[in-house]
């Protein structure tokens, strides 16, 4: 496990600062331990300090209204756990729970703000960190919605498929989009992905289901 000074010296938050500048920052850091399964912070609570994970693994999750837990990420040592709500001035957007014994180093919000005013370099580091988080979240959203559309599309294809020679419904990509509740562009992309995976094939105006089982699985998992 890194010591407070090692963690501060290597953290992306303070990258570029000289060791003389790091000294006073290290003094502002305090340590806290959590046992396995203990909650570090709850969704909806106010954030008072920035948490650097020093050792152990932490589960970052959200709880849906019906009590289901969705894990957003697993944080590893040297990651910060709550920079988004901290700088947003708002409440925690997620909860965090220790998955084993955990040590965190913390800096109070007002201290971090003071450091940022003193060293614009730190503020620019923070922008980089937040931009990276945004990117991660965008790809998470994309992945979730893409999977869901794939699942719905798989169901639509199965429901409307017939044996060769039989007559069945003919669907345009626009029709499929309307049925799946999405845009035509999204359907195009899903069809292309399924084609690339060998699940379906195209023969001009015929859409051929090559892997019925794979479609079934997709429609059951995400719909």
């Amino acid at each position: 496990m890194k010591s407070k000074s090692e963690l501060v010296a290597t953290s992306v938050f303070f990258a570029g600062l000289k060791s003389a500048e790091l000294e006073p920052i290290i003094k502002l850091v305090f340590e806290k331990r959590f046992e396995r399964e203990e909650i570090l912070f709850f969704e909806g609570e106010a954030t008072e300090s920035l948490l650097f994970l020093a050792s152990g693994v932490v589960k970052i999750f959200k709880t849906s209204p019906d009590g289901k837990e969705q894990i957003l990420s697993i944080a590893h040592p040297e990651e910060t756990l709550n920079e988004v709500p901290l700088f947003n001035g708002g409440l925690n957007t997620t909860s965090a729970q220790a998955m084993m014994q955990v040590v965190v180093y913390m800096i109070n919000k007002r201290d971090i703000e003071m450091i940022m005013r003193q060293y614009p370099l730190v503020a620019s580091n923070v922008i980089h960190i937040l931009a990276k988080r945004t990117r991660q979240l965008v790809s998470l959203v994309e992945e979730l919605s893409f999977k869901r559309v794939n699942g719905r599309l798989a169901g639509i294809l199965l429901e409307n498929a017939v044996r060769d020679g039989e007559s069945g419904a003919k669907l345009t990509q626009r029709d499929m989009a309307a049925m799946a509740g999405t845009a035509r562009e999204v359907i195009s992309r899903s069809l292309k992905a399924m084609e690339d995976d060998g699940i379906i094939g195209f023969d001009k105006h015929r859409l051929i289901i090559r892997d019925r089982e794979a479609l079934k699985k997709m429609s059951q998992t995400f719909s």
């Binding site: 498929a161 017939v162 060769d164 669907l171 345009t172 029709d175 035509r184 015929r206 859409l207 051929i208």
Partner: peptide, 19 residues
């Protein structure tokens, strides 16, 4: 053509069939 048509006037429907 279907994708650009603002009026849904031109369509390329697919017959979906099992292999």
């Amino acid at each position: 053509c279907e994708a650009v048509c603002p009026n849904d006037a031109i369509r390329c429907p697919f017959q979906i069939i099992f292999a």
